[in-house]
Design a protein around this nucleic acid. Structure first.
Lengths: 190, 190
DNA sequence: CCGCTATCGCAACTGGGAGTTGCAATGCCT
DNA sequence: AGGCATTGCAACTCCCAGTTGCGATAGCGG
């Protein structure tokens, strides 16, 4: 068993941390468990990350999806579908699911995590603004449509299923959400 | 300082447990902290509840809103508004907010809590079924409307704000949610 | 009013995980 | 091969979960 060190070790520990979080949850997470899973000694973990919260924050921050391209399918409905599909794919992926779940529950109290959350939302709302703006230019929707309201209405059902009811997420849910948003926008209630 | 015992003590400990959960969160919750807040010794807590999880489950179960009357305002929109307002009032109350937050995050793994959650959802869906059924009888909506879909669409925005974005919950949010649902039902997409 | 008993407070204990320290071992770069 | 940074390891303190035995007390019936 060759001793691993440096960047490979760091990546192994962060990955083990995420796996451990997914398995046991935030409350039952232990530094020793993560170290053991990474095949590394506890002291080594503490040399790179000050404490439990710092390690967990780092693992989450390293795994949030960064800038993906803003969809441009040529139609408002197509763009909404693309946005929704991307989010559902992320939420249903093993890593994404674990990251979001932990980030939105106990770890949301950690300042580093809160900052990343905020930046992520800024990005998402900006993206929705671009999509809505193009739809307005095309004359598909009125100029009074609120982009944040559209985004909230679009994603709310996914988080409800994931965090509250525990119901599964599939393409049918995406279609339903898109249909509701399109209908609400046409009726002028968003 | 007179020694408290019996039923009053039990109530004090459960209340302190909820307060402690709201303050520190599930992960940082300690039996000694809850006991101290209740003005009671740690041993006494362990005599009534086997362990940490049992105590937390008991505190949550004792504080979930039990059967409230199903609204019957005479109109579909009025009933939806009543359902939504009740939920928002519960979510924004100190006790309700804490209970829901803890129940939907880490404590959801506890079997006793999961059972209560399930029962609560059954009740909510049944209530929504009654409201939709009456609207169908009145001819306000088509008979193909899905009551679970209506309920999900109605409540999703509240949980999104509470658990994901952290945005405030007020009557404006209720109105917006009701408007979207009414519009979607009329368009036949729910 | 007094004693009986269930209940509570308290101190002391084990066990495990957080976080720290000093030292020996090992990998990597020159 | 030598030097240096990094890792492994053992030993420590501290805090909280959970347990035990005993002394104190409240509220009960007589």
């Amino acid at each position: 068993m060759p001793q691993v060190r440096g960047a490979r070790l760091e990546a192994a520990v962060l990955s083990a941390t995420l796996a451990e979080l997914a398995d046991t949850g935030y409350a039952a997470f232990t530094m020793e468990g993560a170290a053991r899973r990474a095949g590394v000694h506890k002291t080594t973990v503490y040399r790179r990350w000050a404490d439990r919260e710092t390690l967990i924050s780092a693992a989450l921050v390293a795994n949030v999806a960064v800038s993906v391209p803003t969809p441009d399918t040529g139609s408002f409905e197509g763009d909404l579908r693309a946005l929704a599909s991307d989010l559902v794919a992320w939420l249903t992926s093993p890593v994404g699911g674990a990251v979001v779940r932990v980030m939105l529950t106990e770890a949301g109290r950690l300042p580093g995590v809160a900052a990343v959350k905020h930046a992520l939302y800024e990005d998402r709302f900006a993206r929705a603004g671009v999509v809505v703006g193009r739809a307005v230019e095309r004359g598909e929707v009125g100029s009074s449509v609120s982009a944040p309201a559209v985004l909230r209405a679009l994603v709310a059902p996914f988080y409800l299923r994931m965090l509250v009811t525990g119901e599964p997420l599939d393409e049918g849910v995406v279609e339903a959400a898109v249909a509701v948003v399109v209908c609400a926008v046409r009726a002028g209630v968003l």
